[in-house]
């Protein structure tokens, strides 16, 4: 079983549209994991049926039981996150600021503070329109996107892939370079970078690759909208060569991405669009590259 993770650093490069296309091309050989849990969009294209839903808890929040509180203020003194609010002597926890470190509960002399597990979101296992399975999630608003939900989605997908002897796990990775994307990348066999030739596109590509490099994973790159700025496309090509990244495809600027999205379809489900064939070629190239790993 091989794990393919698609990341982009920057948003809006077409990452999810391309990943969903691969999911359709891979059909039943693939278990899909949507690890872009912060702004999950794959469900809009792949028609999941939300067959299994599970609440997801992570970390803790302090809670002050007013009956036991003697208003000594010790919790207020030790909290580094200004999460303890005092109004007319009444001590309460501001949930948005609380990091769940538990320090306040440890110093409370009257056992008035307890730590409650925090619900951060929901994790789903669904049958999608290809007949295969997708694991995805909805992060609660303002939740700590700790990477744990990402890890959960991935592990769940891995177990299913193991049980059902599937060839690939396809992961729509998280944006940025922080904790969630670190979780998305861990354990991957191949990383697909989706970028665009803009000053921010190349900037974020280099930043996210710095992270990928630490994991020492074989990497390929798709340059979407390559014709928008040929100069930067050339710079990206030089960068790929210098880092020994496989150039998978350059796709021209095309509004078919939006058109397909409006129909709730992936690009490869459209009739005879040129981009469709380019994505199909890319998928074949990825599969070939994986064979030699």
């Amino acid at each position: 079983m091989k794990e393919i993770v698609v990341v982009s650093g920057k948003g809006g490069t077409g990452k999810t549209s391309i990943t969903a296309s691969f999911a359709v091309l891979g059909g039943k050989d693939i278990i899909v994991a949507d690890c872009d849990v912060d702004a999950a969009d794959m469900h809009l294209l792949l028609e999941p049926n939300y067959e299994i839903s599970e609440e997801f808890h992570s970390g803790e929040l302090a809670y002050i039981n007013q009956n036991n509180c003697i208003q000594c203020g010790k919790c207020y003194d030790v909290c580094r996150f200004t999460a303890i609010e005092v109004t007319n002597g009444r001590h309460t926890v501001n949930a948005l600021n609380c990091e769940g470190c538990g320090y306040c509960a440890r110093v409370c002399p009257s056992d008035a503070i307890i730590n409650k597990p925090q619900k951060v979101g929901q994790c789903f296992t669904s049958i999608i329109k290809t007949g295969s399975i997708m694991v995805h999630a909805k992060l609660g608003i303002g939740a700590d996107n700790s990477g744990k939900l990402v890890a959960k989605v991935k592990n769940e997908a891995k177990e299913i892939a193991n049980d059902e002897l599937k060839e690939y796990i396809l992961v729509d990775g998280s944006p940025g370079v922080g904790c969630p994307v670190v979780s998305s990348l861990s354990g991957a066999d191949f990383v697909v970078l989706v970028t665009e030739p803009s000053v921010s596109g190349i900037h974020d590509l280099m930043r996210v690759y710095e992270l990928v490099e630490r994991f020492n994973i074989k990497t390929g790159c798709i340059i979407n909208k390559f014709d928008i700025n040929q100069g930067i496309t050339n710079e990206i090509m030089d960068f790929l060569e210098s880092k020994n990244i496989v150039h998978l495809k350059s796709i021209p600027y095309n509004e078919v991405f939006t058109e397909a999205m409006l129909l709730g379809k992936t690009i490869v489900e459209l009739d005879n669009d040129p981009v469709k064939f380019q994505i199909m070629e890319t998928w074949i190239k990825i599969k070939k590259t994986l064979k030699y790993l």
Binding site: D38, A39, L96, L139, G142, A143, D144, N145, P175, G176
Partner: peptide, 14 residues
Amino acid sequence: SPPGTSCPVIEATK
């Protein structure tokens, strides 16, 4: 601000 709906956005907009 950062994109998304999790902690970094809350911190940036609160």
